[in-house]
Amino acid sequence: MASIVKEFTKGLWEEVPPFRFVLGLCSVLAVTTSMSSAIGLGGGVIFVTVMSNVLVSALRKVIPDKVRIAVFIVIIATAVIIVELTMQAYFYGLYEVLGIWIPLIVVNCLVLGRAEAFARKQSVILSLADGLGMGIGFTLSLAVVASIREIIGAGTWFGIQVMPAIYPGFTYLLKPPGAFVCLGIMLGLMNVVSARLDAKKKAAA
């Protein structure tokens, strides 16, 4: 039980994908212009990581090593198309906004990375916990970056005006270079915070 919790929580801080492994950056940069698209894509990624991790782990004894990447990709692509169809059927507005980024979850290195590095060697339950943790960690990272960009850049959050009406909007953050700057600062801050935490741990021990 303890290991399940451990595998789940590591995705939330210790190994949070975009900031620790610098994985899945294209989508982090592209969809974080607004909260709603960030959460929408995050939800899709959670579903895909969980499904691919569970299936890969369940089939890990059957899959021959030489064709494993092909099998992984088939599984991941299936999960992604399910997400795409579901989104098209029930969240059409979101589907229109996210556009090409939904099919591109297939090549999000986070998903393949977890299948290759974790699910192929671990039991189904642990892989489920890992996939869920990684997916949620990814979504939270998207949400943090999107909050910063949307609130400071446009003065809104989930499309609701949060800044006073006189706020001019720092449009730079909504543009691609703003995404890079935002991400870089987040990476830096994460390292500062965890360096502080490590130092505290050492001092305590």
Binding site: V71, V74, A77, I81, Q88, Y90, Y92
Partner: peptide
């Protein structure tokens, strides 16, 4: 065999999802 079976199962699953959502997708469009 493994690759074929996995692909077949996935393809079949997708076909089912496609059928299940087709009407709703058309409605949304």
């Amino acid at each position: 065999v493994v690759l074929t079976v996995v692909s077949l199962v996935c393809g079949g699953g997708l076909a089912m999802v496609k059928m299940a959502t087709a009407e709703q997708v058309e409605y949304q469009k």
